[in-house]
Nucleic acid binder design. Structure first.
Lengths: 162, 162
DNA sequence: ATACTTTCTCAAGTCAACTTGAGATCAAGG
DNA sequence: CCTTGATCTCAAGTTGACTTGAGAAAGTAT
């Protein structure tokens, strides 16, 4: 084990963050975090990189993709270690994102209440599916409120399971 | 185009739900929905299958995986078309799931407020990451509140961008 | 110097949820 | 019957976020 250096090995970063070594390597290769190199060529990380890894892990928990996370990390200074203020700014963005997601769910739930009443669950009329964030362009009205369920015609045979 | 039958072609199901034909086929192959067959071997769907497809699409919007959705769909009767009550029961499950997700986010947000204050974002101490739903087993305290950032030692060279 | 662990580089595999493509067949209007 | 468009099967490709494996080199304790 490496003794005493301001730099951390990939294994240490992995241990500190609880992630797999391969994940850390992946983030470094993707440029999400910065890896320096030892004389022998092994990756070495500054402590501030750990914070970035933490940021990545937490953001993923909130449902952000690595692409989105990259966008946030790009807002950090590239020439100096990020300060508390730098991180706080991004944390605030987090809070906003959470609030937004919650508001979305709340709208969804309200609409759902109506849906439980009507029991429709039809894509074209369902308020959940056709929220304000995405409107599917659909054909003429589908009638999920029982129109005529008789009129059997063509014979059928069950699908061979598989 | 098929004229007048209580059964729908895969293309009609796709058009009604706004999904791709390949997606419908995939769901049928996976057994999430039931496909009957025409004499010639083409898939034929009852109207209630559309509702299932809608259910799948909506559930995915709420962040459920197909595996979870399958679990819900399995609760529907296999021998008869689902009634309004059957669907309402599942819709209620929806509502509960949304409420749960919202509660999770709310806890997250409250914890985040503390984090913005401390500016930590450290995986082992961060309240967001170490929520009540998952506790990472980590080593002895990582000190992200600046311990000693001096003591440079081993030389390093930047990683070849790639 | 030896032994042992860690890390390295690639390449390839995994999983979910589908999509795409090839070549053949079905269905329906004229 | 013929033509056109919809479907069929089966295999393989796609994307995101990694993991796994092989074989070699680095790093550290003794």
């Amino acid at each position: 084990m490496p003794r005493k250096s301001p730099f951390l090995t990939i294994g240490e970063v992995a241990a500190r963050t609880g992630l797999a070594v391969s994940a850390i390597r992946y983030y470094a290769d993707e440029g999400l975090i910065t890896a320096l190199r030892s004389e022998g060529g092994n990756r070495r990380f500054t402590r501030s990189e750990i914070r970035k890894v933490s940021f990545i892990a937490i953001s993923q928990r909130l449902g952000f993709s690595l692409a989105e996370i990259r966008g946030q990390l790009d807002r950090l200074p590239g020439d100096r270690p990020p300060t508390k203020a730098d991180w706080a700014r991004i944390s605030t963005g987090f809070r906003d994102a959470i609030d937004e997601r919650m508001a979305q769910l709340e709208r969804l739930r309200d609409r759902l209440d109506g849906c439980i009443g009507c029991g429709c669950l039809s894509l074209d009329t369902c308020a959940i599916y056709n929220g304000d964030d995405k409107a599917a362009a659909l054909g003429p009205g589908a009638n999920w409120v029982e129109k005529r369920e008789s009129d059997l015609g063509r014979p059928v045979r069950p699908q061979p399971a598989g």
